[in-house]
């Protein structure tokens, strides 16, 4: 089962690498809205690759009850994939409603009234 170990190794390490890249992004990027893209990397590919790497670990003893662990890992992955865009959208929408500034580019406001209200 050395092949499975190597696959799992590669997935885990690349997942950790993508997490760190997202972490660097959240430090380096210039304003709030761009930083959300950095966080998005760690939430999708970083977490996904790492959970996949852990899932490969369950395969050697799949029939001896490890299938339940795989189901739990997949549940965690599905849950992260559903909640991550929801909280991300709630975050930027709240920041936009509060009038957090963006750096560059002209902005087509959907409704200027909202800016005035806040």
């Amino acid at each position: 089962m050395i092949v499975l170990d190597i696959i799992s190794w590669v997935l885990l390490v690349s997942g950790g690498l993508f997490c760190i890249i997202g972490g660097i992004g959240i430090i380096r990027l210039p304003d709030f809205y761009t930083r959300t893209h950095g966080a998005s990397i760690t939430d999708t590919l970083g977490a996904g690759l790492m959970l996949a790497g852990l899932g490969v670990q369950t395969l050697p003893h799949f029939m001896d009850g490890d299938w339940l662990i795989l189901v739990k890992l997949m549940a965690i992955a599905a849950f992260l994939l559903i909640t991550s865009p929801t909280s991300g959208h709630a975050l930027v929408k709240a920041a936009y409603a509060r009038g957090v500034r963006w750096n560059q580019g002209d902005v087509p406001l959907l409704n200027k009234k909202k800016e005035g209200e806040e």
Partner: peptide, 22 residues
Amino acid sequence: NSITLTPGTITLDLRDDTVLVH
């Protein structure tokens, strides 16, 4: 949700059949 899940784009608002995307 698909737009938000894809890194590099994020949805801010949706009304009148247009999406505001960063």
